[in-house]
Design a protein around this nucleic acid. Structure first.
Lengths: 205, 205
DNA sequence: CCTCCCGTTAGTCATCTGCCTAAGGCGATA
DNA sequence: TATCGCCTTAGGCAGATGACTAACGGGAGG
């Protein structure tokens, strides 16, 4: 009972606890959330399985912290990138460089697994919703700034709709790539890039 | 329930096997793929758990058949709908009616769970890829037809890119809705609908 | 009528699962 | 040196899981 009261704050800089969270991410990449068990976690983190209970109370508690840590990092990077003071086209390209890097590094897999997990764990849903809202907000601000930058009227550039399009497209893109599918992706991104380039050159004139 | 087919028809050797596949889909909706176990399947199908081995060899074998049956139905409906001889705008609206119905009926959940499963089951990947390719093909044909219908040049209507956009957007939309998110969806769909309506009225003139 | 055989049943098996705990160690402090 | 409290360990528990099988029953065909 007393040993389980570890839930609130993240164990400050505890190397072992961090090792468990890292191990969980690795297992998510390699085997999906169904492969995250106490014993496999312990093996992967090179620690004792009893520590899952000691640090996180339960597997679910551990996964909840994985979600928190992962999404915090994700949103922070996103916010910093889109908030920077460079032309929109540059942000756009950086965003897609991130996407590709994340796919290669397995981060996209982690994030998709965590989302899939949240479909069946109501306690994780609020965090996923929060991340979506924050991400959307960052995007909305960037798009509004871009609209000004390029002098686009709301009619030809309905920000709310385009943010929704961008959000859903990003998710769908990650899924398809995870499934080994990339048909048309290059064509689509090139098309958008050309469109942005056009706007950018017009802006400079 | 044990006395299922009271009909004078033959025992229909598939009835029990079908019941297992149905049960699996229900479990996917309610608890995700991690909740599909032999015992829960048996309870849900009101049958004996030994039959999983008898009919499908293993849980994986059963899930593989769930994927096959489900995707066959999905693609068949999609093909029929987009192949019909009505204005594109009507197909578009029907497609989104399907989306909403599927979300409500849980079919979207089933499909997303099966995809999430495929991320970690290499044997299921080919089927998912095949479905994606077939779906994309249906869409491509419909879009090409729409381009002719509305007299759009390839430059302002790059089919390959738009098919990719449509595919990924569809996936992302389903995910967000599954996670209880729908910000901007209506605005986006209304925007597209207005655009199509414009094209449609111009076509009639 | 009898026989055969498919579908079904109950039950077993080894293994794995999450959760929990008593006991030990180890470093910092007094 | 002795004490204290945080980490860590090995181990155990009850329950669940996937795979499998011997045995049965009832309908179809002889």
């Amino acid at each position: 009972m007393a040993t389980t009261s570890r839930t609130p704050a993240p164990p400050d800089r505890n190397a072992t606890a961090e090792a468990f969270l890292d191990a969980a991410e690795r297992l998510l990449v390699e085997d999906g959330y169904a492969g995250v068990t106490t014993r496999r976690l312990a093996a992967e983190a090179d620690a004792n399985q009893g520590l899952v209970h000691y640090y996180f109370g339960s597997i679910d508690g551990l996964l909840a912290q994985v979600v928190e840590r992962f999404t915090d990092r994700l949103v922070e990077r996103q916010r910093e990138m889109y908030g920077s003071d460079v032309p929109f086209i540059e942000k756009w390209r950086t965003a897609w460089r991130f996407q590709r890097e994340d796919l290669e590094a397995g981060y996209s897999k982690v994030w998709m697994e965590l989302q899939a997990l949240s479909w069946n764990r109501p306690n994780l849903k609020p965090t996923v919703e929060r991340v979506n809202a924050e991400w959307r907000d960052v995007l909305r601000q960037a798009f509004e700034r871009a609209a000004k930058e390029y002098g686009l009227a709301p009619e030809q550039f309905p920000v709310e709709a385009l943010v929704a399009l961008m959000m859903t497209f990003g998710q769908g893109y990650a899924i398809e790539r995870l499934e080994g599918i990339d048909s048309g992706h290059a064509a689509l991104l090139d098309w958008v890039d050309g469109w942005l380039e056009d706007l950018e050159s017009r802006r400079k004139r």
